[in-house]
Amino acid sequence: MKRLFACGVALAFAALAPFTAQAQLLQQPVRIVFPFAAGGGGDALARILAEELHKGLNRNVVVENKTGGAGQNGVLEVVNSNPDGNSLLLTPIAPVVVYQNVYKNLKYDPFKDLKPVALVADFEFAIAVGPNVPVKTLPELVTWLKANPKQATFGSPGAGALPHFFGVLFGKAVGIDMVHVGYRGSSAALTDLIGGQIPIVVTTTTDLLATHQDGKIRILATSDSKRSPLVPEVPTFKELGYNIEGTAWYAVFAPAKTPDDVINKYSKIISDAVQRPEMKARLLKMGLYAKGSTPAELGKLQKEHADRWAPAVKASGFNPAK
């Protein structure tokens, strides 16, 4: 029995070894800081990038989850790191695009304290209604909401996240005062939507996809300027005559003083990696459209989006500092 056990342990460790043998105890690793907890979709993306950077640089690359302050803590960790090219930040859009408008005492300047490296992937939002809402199109929803103002409540995966602001943007565009209910993640909001507990949910298209295809809920519109490849039959807000648009993305940044040649090297590795067909397919399964970009392109995008979201943040009245 003892020998069996010893064999088992050896087997388990042997299975672990090949995947981590490269990890070197004595060499400084490149670390990718991800400002949210392990386990979510973004975290998986960080781990995929780590694998690619490891292949491209032939160095040990680790993912460090640094949570807190809805992402602020992780960004700050990178901002305060040595700009030696050993610290990178993989972040969703919000901490580097809207937080300067949300948090009055934000401890970093997303434009001055960080240097863009590469855009990794983007995705869009969608608005969906549950089984109790008798509408098939977005204009019908607007009419229905005007007739039933008490039903003008929408759920989002979290207060202060972009879907929250996008819902507010929608309410403003159609002239309805929407009450926001923040959930902890899309799953909880979706459960309530399917169960008819809440009429409307705004979140990423991916999170709504499976239940939409199953007919339990209905996606009425998507938020990009062009139709979503995931649900090509659904029109965009713009097509329907509502002038609102919004996409979100994941991108890599580095501390501001990181040398340009290092930044360019990383940018190329990441962009090339996500452009590979099998990687594109892998990301699409996670609901992400692979992008890749030069540092300059990402910088431009960051500024554009910051201008776009500023009015929505203001209109939402979301202000944690009060």
């Binding site: 460790f13 672990l16 070894a17 981590t20 990890a23 105890l25 004595l26 060499q27 400084q28 690793p29 670390r31 680790v62 993912v63 460090e64 030696d84 050993n86």
Partner: peptide, 23 residues
Amino acid sequence: SALFFILLLNLPFAAIPPVLLSQ
């Protein structure tokens, strides 16, 4: 701990003082 958590489980800690790590 160094072998198990850093080498085997690849946790993002330094095993020895980071100053001594080679670049």
